[in-house]
Design a protein around this nucleic acid. Structure first.
Lengths: 110, 110
DNA sequence: CAAATATATGTGTATATATGAATATATCGC
DNA sequence: GCGATATATTCATATATACACATATATTTG
């Protein structure tokens, strides 16, 4: 059962990663890391059509990465876990260093 | 130009995340985090068809997440950056806590 | 209840992704 | 150069993803 369970876990692991694998969702997550926001605020601040924001929020919700909270007229979304931002920051640093290294290689060839 | 450059960066950011967003690639990355491995070793250890391993390695290569090194007959792949594993571990912890919380909620309802 | 506002969903479509099976390419030792 | 082994690619296909546009649902206030 080890193998089968592990595969299941790895599948879930991949689904969380897939939650990060879209530019618009990354923008949403960073925006929420500042403070909770409702859908309209996200749509306005990120200049994204509201239905698109809703759909991405649904994806993040389903993966437990954000959660909704009704505040009167409005639904406020909150980042579920700061470690999501930590992970994004790590990956951004990996990307930056990779690009730097590549640039240095090109430099060295000149 | 700010906006445009930032979008480009976010796009690259998302592509690295997408590199993690597949169970087989997650397995490959964890395997490489133990030590460098050649394609056949990966294929054997992870019980994945060799062409499938090659294809996933290509994806990881293109994103600068692993790099190849010929060692005689064999091509040894190395994890490009340990922070990829750190990020994966963070995300796995997020997942685990999310599942735990959900389980407790279900428990509370019983 | 009706109107107004906030949020979510349906549809169509274009594009990307993952995979098996077969095959191609490359490198080493002779 | 040839045979053997290691790695990569092509093809066909099934499935998932992202998006615009239109529309539906829900909640609050009057």
């Amino acid at each position: 059962m080890n193998t089968n369970l592990e595969l299941e876990v790895t599948q879930l692991h991949a689904e969380i990663c897939a939650g990060l694998a879209d530019p618009n969702r990354i923008l949403i997550l960073y925006e929420l890391s500042q403070s909770p926001r409702n859908v309209t605020e996200l749509s306005t601040n990120l200049k994204m059509p509201q239905p698109l924001v809703s759909r991405h929020l649904k994806i993040l919700r389903e993966r437990g990465m954000v959660f909704p909270n009704r505040k009167g007229t409005v639904i406020e979304y909150t980042l579920a876990d700061d470690r999501l931002i930590q992970a994004l920051d790590l990956l951004r640093a990996v990307m930056r260093d990779g690009l730097t290294k590549r640039a240095e290689l090109i430099e060295a060839l000149a």
